[in-house]
Simulated scan of single mutants.
Amino acid sequence: MSLPSRRVVGVSAIAMAAVVAAVALPLFQPWRLFTDKVVDESLPGAPGVSMTSSSPVPPTVSGDRTSTPAPPTPKPATTKPSQPAEPERLAAGRLISHEHETQGSVAIFRLPDGSRVLRLENLDTSDGPDLKVWLTNAPVLEGRAGWHVFDDGRYRNLGDLKGNHGNQNYVIPTDVELADFTSVTIWCDRFNVSFGAADLSKT
């Protein structure tokens, strides 16, 4: 092959590689394997910590003599307000790894207002493109056998994964019948693969 021909082939190969890279990089987003996003949300409706002090009133000092203030006038007895309802845990499970190392726990709560949320706690997984949180009716299988089963049956998308680390809440729509779903997966919708999943057990 002559030198000019080799140059043409070389330029063509470089151009082809550039085209492949331009298509593949946005699709696969390989840099996301090295990025992290932490989202730390509290559970809605959980009781807060009271910051009211119960320390007694200190004595007052006048000159060189110490006097104790007169006791306060008794207030009429009042009925103690009832404590607000707390979130009720309906189901729970622990995440296992599928295509990517994944750890953490999953729970479904009914909040005091009647709404329901799916909560991921202490989540630790990889970042990736088009990650979703799904309720599904598929069995959770260990190993490669469990990577691709979750879109074979019924599933409900609860939204984009907010972060690959932390504690997060996902609202469950009112029309979802929890009895129809037995598992949760962190699902890569672009490549149809589970990063990690958990069986749900009623509590």
Results as ranks from 00 to 15, higher is better:
residue 171 V to W: 00
residue 161 L to H: 06
residue 167 N to A: 07
residue 179 A to V: 09
residue 137 N to H: 07
residue 175 D to K: 11
residue 173 P to W: 01
residue 153 G to S: 08
residue 177 E to G: 14
residue 166 G to S: 01
residue 173 P to G: 07
residue 169 N to D: 14
residue 172 I to R: 00
residue 168 Q to P: 05
residue 182 T to R: 15
residue 136 T to F: 03
residue 140 V to R: 10
residue 137 N to C: 06
residue 125 T to M: 11
residue 129 P to E: 02
residue 170 Y to M: 08
residue 145 A to P: 06
residue 140 V to D: 09
residue 124 D to G: 11
residue 133 V to K: 00
residue 184 V to Q: 00
residue 141 L to P: 04
residue 164 N to R: 09
residue 162 K to V: 12
residue 159 G to F: 00
residue 128 G to K: 07
residue 147 W to N: 12
residue 141 L to D: 10
residue 125 T to N: 11
residue 156 R to I: 02
residue 164 N to H: 09
residue 152 D to L: 14
residue 179 A to C: 04
residue 149 V to N: 10
residue 158 L to G: 03
residue 161 L to K: 07
residue 129 P to K: 02
residue 133 V to Y: 00
residue 152 D to W: 09
residue 163 G to F: 11
residue 130 D to L: 13
residue 133 V to A: 06
residue 132 K to A: 08
residue 170 Y to V: 05
residue 157 N to H: 04
residue 177 E to N: 15
residue 180 D to A: 14
residue 144 R to D: 12
residue 182 T to Y: 14
residue 174 T to W: 00
residue 143 G to Y: 05
residue 155 Y to G: 03
residue 152 D to H: 13
residue 135 L to Q: 02
residue 156 R to Y: 10
residue 164 N to D: 15
residue 122 N to G: 12
residue 156 R to M: 12
residue 178 L to H: 03
residue 172 I to N: 00
residue 174 T to K: 03
residue 152 D to I: 09
residue 143 G to E: 08
residue 149 V to A: 13
residue 148 H to W: 03
residue 165 H to W: 02
residue 145 A to F: 06
residue 130 D to C: 07
residue 133 V to I: 14
residue 130 D to P: 06
residue 160 D to A: 15
residue 140 V to T: 11
residue 121 E to T: 15
residue 143 G to T: 08
residue 162 K to P: 06
residue 175 D to A: 12
residue 135 L to W: 02
residue 128 G to M: 09
residue 124 D to S: 15
residue 124 D to F: 10
residue 166 G to E: 01
residue 163 G to T: 08
residue 134 W to P: 04
residue 169 N to M: 11
residue 140 V to P: 08
residue 174 T to D: 07
residue 127 D to I: 00
residue 177 E to Q: 15
residue 174 T to V: 04
residue 161 L to N: 05
residue 146 G to C: 07
residue 135 L to V: 03
residue 129 P to Q: 06
residue 152 D to Q: 15
residue 129 P to Y: 02
residue 135 L to I: 05
residue 125 T to F: 01
residue 135 L to K: 01
residue 179 A to D: 15
residue 178 L to C: 07
residue 167 N to L: 03
residue 169 N to E: 11
residue 159 G to H: 00
residue 131 L to I: 13
residue 177 E to R: 14
residue 124 D to N: 14
residue 131 L to S: 02
residue 127 D to V: 01
residue 178 L to T: 05
residue 173 P to I: 06
residue 127 D to N: 12
residue 183 S to T: 12
residue 132 K to D: 10
residue 169 N to K: 03
residue 163 G to R: 10
residue 126 S to P: 00
residue 183 S to A: 15
residue 169 N to R: 07
residue 141 L to G: 05
residue 159 G to Q: 00
residue 158 L to K: 02
residue 170 Y to K: 08
residue 127 D to T: 03
residue 178 L to Q: 06
residue 139 P to W: 03
residue 126 S to Y: 11
residue 123 L to V: 01
residue 142 E to Q: 11
residue 184 V to P: 05
residue 166 G to Y: 01
residue 136 T to G: 08
residue 123 L to E: 10
residue 131 L to T: 03
residue 147 W to F: 13
residue 137 N to Q: 09
residue 168 Q to Y: 04
residue 172 I to M: 01
residue 125 T to A: 14
residue 181 F to G: 00
residue 175 D to G: 09
residue 128 G to T: 02
residue 150 F to W: 08
residue 176 V to M: 09
residue 179 A to I: 06
residue 151 D to T: 15
residue 141 L to W: 04
residue 157 N to P: 10
residue 182 T to E: 14
residue 162 K to Y: 10
residue 134 W to D: 04
residue 168 Q to M: 13
residue 148 H to Q: 09
